[in-house]
Amino acid sequence: MAKDMREPIESGCPDPWQYMHPTMRKNFGQRKYHDHPRPGVLRHVAYSGDEIWTVRAGTQRILDVFTLRKLCDIGDEFADGYVHFTLRSNIEYMVTEESRVDPLINALEEAGFIVGGTQNSVAMISHTQGWLHCDIPGTDASGVVKSMMDELIDEFRNANMPNRVHLTTSCCQINCGGQGDIAINIQHTKPPKINHDLVANVCERPSVVARCPVAAIRPAMVNGKPSLEVDERKCIC
């Protein structure tokens, strides 16, 4: 084996150390305890006596550049410029003084973000990308999540559940939204209908044919134009 190994071009995830709050780096591996002063707020205390206060807010996951800039501006002005995104698309801000927690929460809520999602709450819903990314969704998971969280927002903001509750939403039965205590899977209920006037202009037919898992979609000529047809006997709907 060669002694000098070639550095890989793709080295995986970036080193998180450079993005970590300085107080967290200083006390890495030296946490004494943590507690939950209020919904949406965590406090970690190190053996050195240093404290880190974390404020968690929910986001819509699919973030535009303007929302990202707004979140970063809040972090620069009211926190220490360090943020962390959780697996469920919450954003967390870290500060070292308790006196900075309330101004940070007020800034987030004035900007339209909800603080919560800690301890015995309904966590932010984990979901698939739907129409933004996938080519076989039964529906758009983002819209379903928006409707659900509008109803469950008080359960996210508070911590009144018997235990922590994780919800997931997937656009089809492949269920790439992940696992949760309650999973909402949306599926097709009818075979797809084809607009033959549009297929030749907007559709890559070979890709559509290859994408069907049961070979129910196949090429066809309709009115002298290349199109597609669906064998409803094979369709899994």
Rank of each mutant, 00 (worst) to 15 (best):
G75Y: 00
Q129C: 15
E229R: 03
N160D: 14
E155W: 15
A141T: 10
E77A: 11
V199I: 06
Q173A: 15
V45S: 10
T118G: 08
M161F: 10
G112V: 11
G116Q: 11
L104C: 08
V144Y: 04
T168I: 09
V145D: 02
F78E: 06
L63I: 14
D64T: 09
C13W: 14
P192K: 01
Q60D: 14
V65C: 05
L228P: 01
K193V: 08
G58S: 13
L228S: 03
M148Y: 09
D64N: 14
D150W: 14
S126Q: 10
P22M: 05
G112K: 01
A46T: 09
Y93L: 02
C235T: 02
A57E: 00
E109D: 05
G180M: 11
E204P: 11
D181P: 06
A216L: 00
L167M: 06
I182Q: 06
V199D: 02
I52N: 07
P206R: 05
D140H: 08
V208R: 03
H166E: 12
Y19Q: 07
F66S: 11
P16Y: 05
Q129W: 15
A141F: 02
P192R: 08
E51F: 08
T86C: 03
D150F: 13
V65N: 08
S121Q: 01
L108E: 04
V41T: 10
M221H: 15
P206V: 00
E155D: 15
Q18L: 14
N158F: 11
C13R: 09
W53I: 10
M1K: 07
Q18Y: 09
C237N: 12
A210F: 10
K146T: 10
I153E: 04
Y47V: 04
A107Q: 05
H36E: 06
V208N: 03
E98K: 15
N90I: 00
R25D: 01
T169F: 15
L198S: 00
G49L: 06
P213E: 07
S48W: 04
P192F: 03
C203M: 10
Q173S: 14
G49I: 01
C134A: 08
W53N: 01
D80I: 03
C134G: 12
H36R: 10
P192D: 05
R43F: 13
N158P: 05
V208E: 05
Q18D: 05
S99N: 06
F78L: 11
Y82F: 07
F113S: 07
I153P: 04
C172D: 12
G130H: 02
T128C: 15
M94K: 09
P192N: 07
P191A: 01
A57H: 02
E98R: 10
E232S: 11
H166I: 15
A46N: 07
F156Y: 15
D80V: 04
T168K: 13
C203T: 03
M149R: 15
T59H: 02
D154W: 13
G58P: 04
D80M: 02
I174F: 08
V209E: 01
E92Y: 03
A183E: 09
R218Q: 12
P137T: 00
V145Y: 13
E204H: 08
K234Q: 09
M20E: 08
A123Q: 12
V199A: 05
T59Y: 09
M20A: 11
E204Y: 05
F78A: 09
E232T: 14
I74Q: 00
L108I: 00
T139E: 00
Y19R: 13
N120T: 11
G58D: 03
F28S: 14
K146I: 13
L68F: 14
E229C: 04
A183N: 11
C72K: 09
T86S: 06
